[in-house]
Design a protein around this nucleic acid. Structure first.
Length: 271
DNA sequence: ATCCAGGAATTTT
DNA sequence: AAAATTCATGGA
């Protein structure tokens, strides 16, 4: 058990913003099933009650480091972003387990959040690592059975998940985590089923590379609405524009833009 | 029924 | 090199 103060933090918004999939709801609290721990977290205003892991583990996972206020202050100077920051104040970037994030985001290709969560739940159950009544994803070095991955309804992604998992030994995982942003992105893109978008998701949500800017179909649409007149013809052009405009805060900006795009999806459907 | 979903790999211009 | 097609599956 533990208690910590967390100002400018919204647990629900952060967990349900599409960056993290291994959680379950339980009577107003969240169970986070990650990193070999089953963590229970509940927020009351600026107070966070937690159990199942150390305070340091919880703070790292949820992105509760200093620096958020400064990042928000810098991004608020952008008149386009300022209203989004006000609306979604407390939305943070998590720092997840690298191996779990890679598997999770391979599942994310051409999918949706509820289905990704279902895939990972089935995969964890199929691999059988139960703890505290919850099933955890297999750790690095545990070979994945293709039929089990396939039976998790991962579709055409199953072979990528198995093949990527084969390559993800502790040494490669360490090299990825120790690398700078661009090199980490390159290494990740070398994995089966990992392209530039998923590599940026991993860089941002697991490795803490604040300049990473994953461009999915929603963010691309939103960027073209928010910045008409700019050359945002390709995903790469959008990413470069964002990195030039927001630098190492680009990733946080992306998270606000993605949230806004989700909320206003119907209105943008015809773009 | 038909279409789309936080893309990437493969094949075809 | 750029553009089109394919890849499973669940939900609307």
């Amino acid at each position: 058990m533990g208690v910590l103060q967390a100002k400018q933090f919204n647990l629900r918004l952060t967990l349900e913003s599409g960056q993290f999939f291994r959680y379950a709801e339980d009577h107003g609290a969240y169970i986070l099933i990650t990193g070999g721990k089953t963590v229970r977290v509940r927020q009351e205003d600026n107070t966070l009650h937690f159990s199942g892991a150390s305070q340091a583990f919880v703070e790292r996972l949820l992105g509760l480091d200093e620096g958020y206020a400064r990042q928000c202050r810098r991004l608020s100077k952008d008149p386009v972003l300022a209203p989004l920051l006000r609306r979604y104040r407390g939305l943070r970037i998590m720092r997840q387990d690298l191996h779990e994030a890679i598997i999770g985001f391979i599942c994310s290709s051409q999918s949706n959040i509820p289905k990704i969560r279902m895939n990972l739940n089935l995969l964890a159950q199929g691999c059988g690592a139960e703890m505290d009544g919850y099933y955890h994803l297999p750790k690095p070095g545990i070979a994945l059975n293709y039929d089990i991955v396939r039976s998790a309804k991962t579709g055409y992604r199953a072979k990528f998940i198995v093949a990527a998992n084969e390559r993800l030994d502790p040494l490669l995982l360490y090299e990825i985590s120790a690398a700078q942003y661009v090199e980490a992105h390159t290494l990740l893109c070398g994995l089966p089923g990992v392209g530039p978008k998923i590599a940026d998701c991993v860089c941002l949500f697991a490795l803490g590379h604040g300049g990473a800017f994953p461009v999915d179909v929603h963010v691309a649409r939103a960027m073209r609405v928010l910045f008409p007149g700019e050359d945002l013809s390709t995903e790469l052009a959008i990413k470069h524009f964002a990195q030039q405009r927001w630098g190492t805060d680009a990733g946080l900006a992306q998270q606000f833009i993605f949230q806004w795009a989700r909320d206003s999806a119907p209105a943008m459907r015809s773009r």
